[in-house]
């Protein structure tokens, strides 16, 4: 990297810094806006976080100009992350707060159930 090149980099870092500050203020401001649909608010919030994340990753972590190997590792990671993230939420049986749950082999539990059924 030559010196001029680095001076350019410093300029970029300064601009990114300002952009990140702006987006931070923006996302806090938007959180006070009331959306009729809850998911719109969530979507906007995630979108802003995504943009901020992209700015950090692309510029500070130099992902806009990285070697192929690194991209491959990240693509692999991202694909597994998608699996980890979305599969559990597609479960039909996620209701954890429904009824009473009794540990199967617990004699006290059985007693409790019998008492409550009378």
């Amino acid at each position: 990297m030559s010196h001029d090149n680095i001076q350019d980099h410093i300029k970029v870092y300064r601009n990114i810094f300002l952009a990140l500050l702006t987006f931070t203020v923006l996302t806090v401001a938007i959180s006070y806006v009331h959306f009729d649909l809850v998911w719109v608010g969530i979507l906007v919030g995630l979108l802003i976080a995504g943009i901020k994340g992209y700015l950090v990753a692309a510029n500070f972590m130099h992902l806009n100009n990285e070697k192929k190997m690194i991209y491959w590792i990240l693509i692999l990671t991202a694909s597994f992350l998608v699996l980890l993230f979305f599969m559990p939420t597609l479960w039909d049986n996620n209701i954890a707060h429904s009824e009473t749950t009794v540990l199967f082999d617990d004699p006290g539990g059985r007693e409790y159930l019998e008492k409550s059924s009378h």
């Binding site: 009824e99 009473t100 749950t101 540990l103 617990d106 539990g109 159930l113």
Partner: peptide
């Protein structure tokens, strides 16, 4: 989960 029963009583957690 909420309302978990152990040892004859509801387990004292938020659930």
């Amino acid at each position: 989960p909420t309302g978990l029963i152990h040892g004859g009583a509801i387990v004292d957690v938020a659930g």
